[in-house]
Design a protein around this nucleic acid. Structure first.
Length: 416
DNA sequence: ATATAGAACGGTACGGTGGG
DNA sequence: CCCACCGTACCGTTCTATAT
């Protein structure tokens, strides 16, 4: 009757693959979304994964540097541990892809291709999207791109003799934290090295001071690996951790992901909104199956003017129970923070008014907390619908939604 | 004037750290 | 040992000069 923290994917057939298992892991520094191993036994630190996969929902249409640059540092980083790993950038787009690719997108994607990254989930015109063959080609394409507007620091690549300079702001909110540019500069530098350049590579116009360079930062690690210089500053030597990943045992999302999957696989209910990861982009699914992005603020102007209450708080998961005409708004938390979860239930008024009641007017709305962690085998708080504890015990709350009870019952029946 | 696109900025989770 | 604090990483949205 216990969850073993291992999921098996069923319902497919493949001659080369008998069974597929999924387990939660996390990284110590920069880390891709998925590692795929092809082997008999559960992976250990000694095993080498076949694929490293990075996923995004951001299209060129929404953002240029985030869509293509921001994730790139992960591919550069993972190669330090697994030089031969197959790298995949997976665009999981729920909206229409932008018709004409922008120059930034073409430039970034060609860099990724040169690094050996396979692009999935997007249509790539085969004439435009070719790997680069020389450093000069990269310099020329970047130079031909539209210039950044005044006040911004443009990314520019210059080659003089035995030295290449790459400009780009790396300073953000008090430190070396400008993610899109950490990605862009890592990617550009890695590709230049890949094309055989052994001369100097100097990062300029970064906006950093010496104290911002911490040996633990992912960019400093990459800079050491690629032998980059940061203009005007001394690059601290970085020490790489021995391992790239570990099995995850802590995250609050264990609980909400579990209930999400059990409901979808063992009842007729399903998710109409999910946000298991922090700032993940989420779509609300309407009654006729459309995906709509959620507004972030109930009153944008007021929020920007300082009224922080005008943000729309979103649940971690919204499940729908058609049979009982119920919609379940779920907040996920670790067991020790259950009080915070109960408090947050009170803030779901906006989303219920703006989205749920609008698209599902006849449904009854239930708010509940789903917990992970601890070793308790029961929960006292009536606001808690379900608890998965760290021993794998499945604990239904006193007033658990009927859909939860049905899901757990069917799950246990299936396995007994 | 206005849409575009290059770049900056914002919000959340989590782990390390140090004081009580 | 607990917990507040802070920095890093992650994943988005927003800003705004410029091209059209």
């Amino acid at each position: 009757d216990k969850f073993a923290f291992l999921y098996e994917v069923v319902g497919f057939r493949c001659n080369k693959i008998e069974r597929v298992f999924i387990k939660s892991v996390s990284g110590f520094s920069s880390f891709v979304d998925f590692l795929v191993f092809y082997q008999e036994k559960q992976p250990t630190q000694n095993d080498i994964p076949l694929y490293a996969i990075e996923e995004t929902k951001t299209d060129d249409k929404e953002s240029r540097n985030t869509g293509v640059y921001q994730r790139a540092s992960k591919f550069v980083f993972v190669e330090i541990y697994y030089p031969k790993i197959k790298k995949v950038m997976l665009y999981n787009l729920k909206i229409e892809q932008k018709e004409e690719p922008t120059a930034t997108y073409i430039f970034g994607t060609r860099l990724l291709l040169t690094l050996g990254v396979e692009i999935l989930g997007k249509k790539l015109g085969s004439k435009i999207f070719q790997p680069f063959h020389s450093v000069n080609e990269i310099v020329a394409l970047k130079r031909a791109m539209r210039k950044a507007h005044k006040g911004n620091i443009p990314i520019l690549i210059k080659k003089v003799g035995n030295k290449i300079t790459v400009s780009g702001r790396l300073f953000k909110s008090g430190g070396l934290a400008h993610d899109p540019n950490i990605g862009a500069l890592s990617l550009i530098s890695a590709v230049i090295r890949k094309l055989g350049w052994t001369g100097e590579i100097v990062i300029t116009k970064h906006g950093l001071k010496q104290k911002h360079l911490q040996a633990d930062s992912k960019f400093i690690k990459i800079a050491n690996h690629l032998r980059l210089q940061i203009q005007g500053l001394v690059l601290p030597a970085s020490k790489m951790r021995e391992n790239y990943w570990k099995y995850e045992t802590e995250g609050e999302k264990f609980g909400t992901i579990f209930i999400h999957l059990v409901v979808e696989n063992f009842t007729k209910g399903f998710s109409i909104f999910e946000n298991h990861a922090g700032c993940e982009k989420g779509y609300f699914i309407t009654s006729d199956g459309k995906h709509i992005p959620l507004e972030k603020y109930s009153d944008r102007k007021a929020y920007k003017a300082g009224n922080k209450k005008k943000i729309i708080s979103i649940p971690d998961l919204i499940l729908i129970d058609f049979g009982r005409s119920e919609i379940i708004n779920i907040e996920g938390k670790k067991y020790q923070f259950r009080k915070d979860g109960i408090k947050e239930l009170k803030s779901f008024g906006d989303i219920e008014k703006t989205y749920i009641k609008k698209y599902y007017p006849k449904f009854k709305i239930i708010r509940t907390v789903v917990l992970y962690g601890g070793t308790e085998k029961k929960v006292i708080e009536i606001e808690v619908g379900f608890l998965l504890n760290e021993n794998g015990d499945l604990v239904l709350g006193i007033k658990a939604p009927a859909l939860f009870k049905e899901a757990i019952k069917n799950l246990l029946d299936f396995w007994s």
